[in-house]
Design a binder for these strands. Structure first.
Lengths: 141, 141
DNA sequence: CCGCATCCGGTGGGATACTG
DNA sequence: CAGTATCCCACCGGATGCGG
């Protein structure tokens, strides 16, 4: 066993690994990214404005997402004690810095998504089960 | 660019929304990012090399992660029919383009992770113990 | 060495209903 | 309008064991 081959170049990763995991856990769930995207393009928004414009989010998930983003210092939450109540959300400065890398991802997605779709189709064709046999059914009810 | 007042500026998002969700679902799980990171820094790697160097991944998750990445055209899988068998994984060209936005995220994480940790501490301090604690309120705007 | 199958507990997240 | 609470279940993901 050659001593040079024992360790791979993961030293740079190890120092940032925890941080990266942490950040990924936050922006990993798609709703967070959608919220940040909406707020970065529209400035401050009310709860239902976010809910209406983020396709498919439940009010429960939106609430949780906003709480997490607020807790991480990425989003501000401002309550106006009126009737009916009004709550506005906006990006903090930290949140605004995050939009740059997120937009990079967004651009990449827009540019390469069709390649991914095509790759999947090609993969599924090759790895599809026997012609007369449909895919396995996990939970037949 | 003349946005009407009735609709928020989500037009650009809507077209990319599906693509973004799709991509996020892939790179959202932390193992994918780790794998791409390892492969981008080390070139092609064998299964157990990946397993050993990605902290905490189970072989099941690594297998699934690699399958998904392969299916999406981000990772190549090369089988050498030897005994014992040898399988090497590497990034496709598409996968290599993805490293740029991922690295941007990685850099952001490294730079701002401590701010997030601090924000969480601050949030937890004045949100958990006192039930009669008012959030930040904009009085009489 | 590589990787699939099976079992199984924990949880993410939708649907729904209720408060201030 | 902006949440909170409850139910419930699909799926994630770890542990273990077998097979080429």
């Amino acid at each position: 066993m050659s001593p040079t081959a024992t360790v791979l170049k993961d030293t740079t990763q190890h120092s940032n690994c925890l941080a990266m995991s942490d950040v990924l856990n936050r922006i990993g769930d798609k709703w967070s990214v959608m919220v940040v995207g909406m707020l970065s393009r529209n400035g401050t928004l009310r709860f239902n404005e976010l809910k209406r414009n983020i396709n498919g989010v439940s009010q429960r998930m939106l609430t949780l997402t906003l709480r997490n983003l607020e807790r991480d210092g990425l989003v501000t939450r401002t309550v106006y004690p009126e009737i009916p109540p009004r709550v506005e959300y906006g990006l903090t400065e930290l949140g605004q810095t995050l939009t740059k890398p997120i937009n990079a991802l967004w651009d990449w997605s827009a540019e390469h998504h069709d390649e991914i779709v095509e790759a999947r189709k090609a993969y599924d064709v090759d790895h599809s089960p026997a012609p007369s046999e449909p895919a396995r059914i996990a939970y037949a009810r």
